[in-house]
């Protein structure tokens, strides 16, 4: 657990004033899920991803998505090698431990789904040959919510592949001041110390699975899910997969909070980032507000 605090402290040095989001990002990694960050450019997404890679000593690659990108640009391609007279696979950028997929919504749906499939399966199949991706494997994708000219918005079904969606937002004024005074961020990221290696991370995510959840808590999670399904304000409710993700994220959050059992607060803490991007509101409603209001109206303790 101390290691986790250290991770937070380390990353917090370069991603200033965003403890909550950092914790969520870390939760997502411990829960072995992929992360979607929705933000304007220049808010520190890259810094966050890079910093996370460094402190966990993960192999890190960054891909800037564009509309002329092909699936092969991500996954790799079979190349004929005249020397050996054989096809060999030239691995694409996806063969890494932490992939930052920048502005994923700029790529064509075809390319997007190639990546998303790889994320889901944690393996890549090219020309009939299946190759496992490295362990662990995380994707941190970013999306620009505002400038959407010429973009391909990720459909809801694809969004389900991301365990969480967060947005970093503007820094607080005093933090911004600190930021301005701080100097080159890239330099600082490079100076970050690795706290845990990738094996340690895998071990940690196994510990997440051992965080206990009481029957009463599972009941609460179930009632939350049920509430999204019976609520008219949503087009459709959360899937069982989303429910499993919610529980896993809550377990990871509990672990980061230094507990070996899950509290309703843990569920509530990860709730917006797990639920919001999977739900869409009927006309006129705000998903964020409605999702939040469910926390108010669903009894934590069964009545």
């Amino acid at each position: 657990m101390q290691a986790l605090d250290k991770v937070l402290a380390q990353v917090g040095r370069v991603v200033l004033g965003k403890e909550e989001q950092l914790k969520l990002a870390l939760t997502c990694m411990l829960a072995n899920g992929h992360l979607l960050i929705e933000d304007l450019p220049g808010m520190g997404k890259t810094t966050l991803a890079h910093a996370l890679a460094r402190v966990f000593k993960l192999e890190y690659r960054r891909v800037q998505f564009t509309s002329d990108m092909l699936p092969a640009d991500i996954l790799g391609v079979s190349v004929f090698d005249p020397a050996t007279q054989q096809f060999s696979l030239r691995e694409g950028p996806v063969f890494t431990q932490l992939l930052l997929a920048d502005e994923i919504n700029r790529a064509t749906p075809k390319t997007q789904s190639a990546l998303l499939e790889a994320m889901e399966e944690r393996q890549v199949t090219l020309d009939g040959v299946t190759r496992d991706l490295p362990q662990p494997f995380f994707v941190v994708a970013t999306q620009n919510p505002v400038d959407q000219a010429g973009t391909f918005v990720l459909p809801e079904s694809q969004l389900d592949r991301f365990l969480m969606r967060i947005s970093l937002g503007y820094p607080a004024p005093e933090v911004e001041l600190q930021l301005l005074a701080g100097g080159d961020l890239r330099e600082q990221v490079r100076e970050l110390q690795a706290v845990i290696n990738s094996e340690g991370l895998i071990k940690l995510s196994r510990v997440v699975g051992k965080v206990r959840a009481s029957h009463e808590l599972l009941d609460y999670v179930q009632r939350l899910l049920d509430a999204t399904r019976s609520d008219d304000r949503f087009v459709s409710g959360l899937s069982p997969r989303a429910g499993l993700g919610l529980l896993k994220a809550a377990r990871a959050w509990a672990l980061i909070s230094g507990r070996d059992y899950v509290l309703p607060e843990d569920v509530q803490a990860v709730w917006p980032s797990v639920a919001e991007h999977r739900l869409s509101a009927r006309q006129g409603g705000s998903v964020a507000a409605t999702t939040q209001s469910l926390l108010q109206s669903v009894p934590v303790i069964r009545r």
Binding site: P264, Q296, V300
Partner: peptide, 28 residues
């Protein structure tokens, strides 16, 4: 019994003061 325990306190607090929403964890 545990559930009733919570709701008794919830009810008492709602009666004596501001009405409370139902989505409160024990700590909240």
């Amino acid at each position: 019994l545990m559930e009733r325990e919570y709701w008794r306190l919830h009810q008492r607090a709602s009666e004596r003061g501001r009405p409370l929403v139902v989505g409160l964890s024990p700590m909240q």
